[in-house]
């Protein structure tokens, strides 16, 4: 077991971890503000990856260049989903909210297959292909970029949520929607904002991911399943929790894929979730 290998595993684990964390933070933000689990979150990721791929295939625009545009487009898409669908089930029962986002998931997946077919597409020869060598350690560039890009995006997000006025309003709405609205915070625009930011996070993750992962209609399920576990592991609604749990899951699945077997790499992640929630029934950072 050489040091090189350990560093490679850690880089690739953290790279995946930050991607899971970005997806999970989006989910947990939406959940925290309005107690809705977005079952279509993985399909948002899939849409972002297609957008990134199509921009590359039609204009030759590198995913790194289109990243801000994909993020912005996904922000608008999130707003659209909120205003056209979610707002209509806001006062409904929990099951109508589950249906709404579940139906959206099925719909978006079928829509992607309708326009793009079931084929796998990949961005080839982007700016970020190849490997870099750092002090004898060989690292694939896309994964390093995923690590750098998604950690930067997380930093920006943290700044936005914890250091700005809007972020403070968002957190207030998330902690106690009623108290926030008596203080003049417009709950509906906070909900919309959570959907926008949550979707933009996924857009960033999608752009970075499209450098080294195939895109196909069902790609979202793979990532979002782990993102759900990350959200629950961190504690529903907790942004710190989603970040820590995402990183933990990224590292654990890379390590168990290497040391146990690639088919079973998610089993230790699932076991970790069970053990944690048995000791702390509301996850690592959840409100008790």
């Amino acid at each position: 077991m050489s040091e090189q290998l350990i560093i490679q595993l850690i880089v690739s684990g953290l790279g995946m971890g930050f991607i899971f964390a970005l997806i999970a933070i989006g989910l947990t933000l939406i959940y925290g503000v309005m107690n809705v689990v977005n079952f279509a979150h993985g399909e948002f990721l899939m849409l972002g990856m297609y957008a990134s791929y199509l921009a590359y295939a039609t204009w030759g625009a590198d995913p790194l260049v289109t990243l801000p545009f994909v993020a912005a487009a996904m922000f608008l898409f999130g707003l659209m989903v909120y205003y056209l669908l979610i707002r209509k089930v806001l006062t409904g029962s929990m099951q109508s909210q589950i249906f709404a986002t579940f139906g959206l998931m099925v719909f978006l997946q079928a829509l992607a297959q309708f326009f793009m077919g079931a084929d796998y597409f990949a961005v080839q020869n982007s700016y970020l292909s190849g490997v870099i060598t750092l002090g004898g350690v060989v690292l694939p560039v896309p994964q390093v970029a995923a690590l750098v890009g998604s950690s930067l995006a997380t930093l920006v997000l943290y700044g936005l949520v914890f250091r700005t006025g809007v972020g403070r309003q968002l957190r207030a709405a998330s902690q106690d929607a009623q108290a926030a609205s008596t203080l003049g915070i417009n709950a509906s625009s906070m909900y919309a904002l959570a959907w926008g930011i949550g979707s933009a996070c996924v857009g960033v993750a999608a752009s970075l991911l499209s450098n080294f992962y195939y895109v196909f209609p069902r790609v979202g399920a793979i990532f979002v399943l782990l993102a759900y576990v990350a959200v629950a592991l961190g504690g529903f609604g907790s942004i710190h929790g989603a970040l820590v749990a995402g990183l933990l899951i990224g590292l654990l699945q890379v390590a168990s894929g290497f040391f146990i077997s690639s088919e079973l790499k998610f089993v230790p992640v699932y076991m970790l979730y069970l053990i944690v929630v048995l000791l702390r029934p509301r996850g690592l950072f959840g409100k008790m």
Binding site: V89, S96, I98, F99, A100, G103, M105, V106, L108, Q109
Partner: peptide, 8 residues
């Protein structure tokens, strides 16, 4: 999918 959303 569209139908599920409509039911919701």
């Amino acid at each position: 999918g569209a139908l599920i959303m409509l039911i919701a």
